[in-house]
Amino acid sequence: MIRAEQLTRHFGQVPAVQQLDFHVRKGEVMGLLGPNGAGKSTTMKMLTCFLPPSEGTASIDGITIDEAMAVRRRIGYLPENAPSYVDLDVSTHLQFVGRMHALPSATLQDRMREMAALCGLEGVMGRRIDELSKGYRQRVGLAASMLHDPVCLILDEPTTGLDPNQIVEIRHLIRRLGESKTVLLSSHVLSEVEAVCDRMMIIDQGRLRAIGTAAELAQLAQNGVEVYVRFKQDGERVIERLQRDELDIRPAQEPHAWLIHCADADTALAEQVFYAAVACDAVIVEMRTARTSLEDVFHRITGSAEKET
């Protein structure tokens, strides 16, 4: 449904996206993950024909982005921060978008009713957009992007700035949309992508670093063994001792807790940590083999890219 081939975009001399190759299947929800400035929005802007690529090409539903009008009729796009015409009321804004898609009046009215119901906008259709909360504006953007019943939705950070309840609602909505449409959504919130997407790709510094399901990415990053350990006190001396063995160690979220990674899967890492703690007279409160979370995958993939540069 969405295919990118060697998609590249430079801003002056600065490469924003470099030789991106990926394929999003029909009816799939694909997450586009990456740190800020990774090239997520630029990729989406090229797919929606807002920015032309410097090199390479992409196609939506078999139509290349050179045919901008045909592509734009097939996609629904929610730009970052869901911009809309804030001086208009919701109903007029949706009418404007529908007319731009050349929807006949009767169809437009039906679609507006459907979208208002789907996005929970029935109570605010007559209100000016600048009077609405951020969450409602996001819904207005989503409703506008789906008004012409596109085959493919491209959503740039659809939950940015929403409160936790709104985030859950929008996620449910995207999940429901994913049942009938192809969705490409970008985010730097890993839990969101994990919760909503069938597959995900991680891009960093404009390059595709990994693509697959959450489990496949975890397997990709699970090259070795990892142990989570929490000490009664800070355990700095133990960590110093373990660092001498060239282990990859980073602090975990909890106080006095660490994640220790060894590239060699055959290493008895838990034993090694235990003996190091004994030697340093440190008390271990909790120790377990860590499950590779999406955060770990993200950290390793984007972290290793940083080291390369």
Binding site: K45, T48, F50, P79, E80, N81, M100, H101, A144
Partner: peptide
């Protein structure tokens, strides 16, 4: 400035 140009320019309009 408001970002609505991105919305407008990604609608099927030249």
């Amino acid at each position: 400035h408001d970002g609505s140009y991105e919305l407008l320019a990604t609608l099927p309009v030249s």
